[in-house]
Design a protein around this nucleic acid. Structure first.
Lengths: 181, 181
DNA sequence: ACCATTCCGTACTGCCCGCTACAGAAATAG
DNA sequence: CTATTTCTGTAGCGGGCAGTACGGAATGGT
């Protein structure tokens, strides 16, 4: 998972994977089928924790605004954690793929879309709770904060530190619709 | 350039390049040296137009806020133009690289950093012109709008249309510091 | 203790990669 | 019209890729 995370699907060879796992190619193929299924399992393992944590964050925050804010902050923390590669694996791992693995790109794009959907649902909840005017475009707002988080992945990969990402987070929260707008 | 743009450096083979150019490998190597230098020339050609247009936009806008707003709008237009691959080549083309081409990643990261610098300078100009309070963090604001643009590249690659990106642009402009803040 | 089965390490396959040697064609010069 | 030079197309180089055939070692049931 760490190799795929750091280098992406195509740039990571089976030889690197087997070396990192301390096994030989036949064991890898017996256990996972092929490189592609191993990749999908790695993504699944990555996202299981990440998306559970995000879901809890979104659910437990008292307001939609706080939910988004905490999610952005958690993302800033996650993207710059020194214990693993920087940036979000779901965003970067299948960015440069030739045409023969476009289904991997689509699989990850689908996961990103699912994340946006959860964001939108939390914002819609905020509208129902009266925190936001009914005419607020929940999908557009979710898309905006998703865009910011994906941009933060690029920034993190380019070496931005945590404080810089948190500053971006604070700036992004200024775009939250005010009650009188 | 279009191939590198769509697929990235590593995923584009010399065979594809020669086929697209209608030449044979020896001609390519005689003209460009190797695949890497061809890539750098393609990036240079890409960015020459793009960054000139951006510089003009930034310079000609009457205020810093309008400059950033028009830049974001132009970016939304560029990222979703149907005449070429979606997304920004400088952001995506060397995202997944193995360790042996990390210098290409750094070269593109440097170009991205140069873009952020131009943004910051325009904002600092706005501060000098009294459009913004002196205590505004120009670097942080530039970094924020750069983050949004880079996130828009991911969105465009995931199929977002122009109107969606323009909506994100409008939302991002709400984060612009107001005079009384 | 014996045997069947499962595991694993070596060594390999065919394939495509970036890149190039070389021969024949085209163009230019005398 | 020939000689020389420049270009270009074919065919192939070593090498690394994803994936596998197979023999021997470890395991476990009887």
């Amino acid at each position: 998972m760490l190799l795929f995370w750091r280098q992406g699907y195509a740039a990571t060879s089976v030889a690197e994977l087997t070396a990192a796992m301390g096994i030989n190619p036949p064991s890898l193929y017996a256990a996972f089928g092929d490189k592609e299924r191993l990749f999908l399992e790695a993504v699944e393992s990555y996202q299981h924790k990440a998306s559970q944590a995000a879901a809890r964050l979104l659910a437990e925050a008292p307001t939609a605004k706080l939910a988004i804010e905490r999610l952005l902050e958690a993302m800033a923390q996650h993207l710059t954690c020194p214990d693993h590669p920087s940036g979000c694996m779901v965003v970067t791992a299948a960015m440069n793929c030739s045409s023969d693995c476009s289904h991997l790109q689509h699989a990850l794009a689908e996961r990103r879309a699912a994340g946006t959907r959860r964001l939108r649902e939390r914002i819609e909840q905020g509208i129902r709770d009266g925190e936001l005017p009914a005419e607020v475009d929940a999908a557009g707002l979710a898309s905006f904060y998703d865009t910011v988080m994906q941009g933060m992945t690029i920034q993190a990969k380019d070496g931005a530190n945590r404080e810089q990402l948190l500053a971006t987070t604070r700036t992004a929260m200024r775009a939250w619709p005010s009650v009188d707008r």
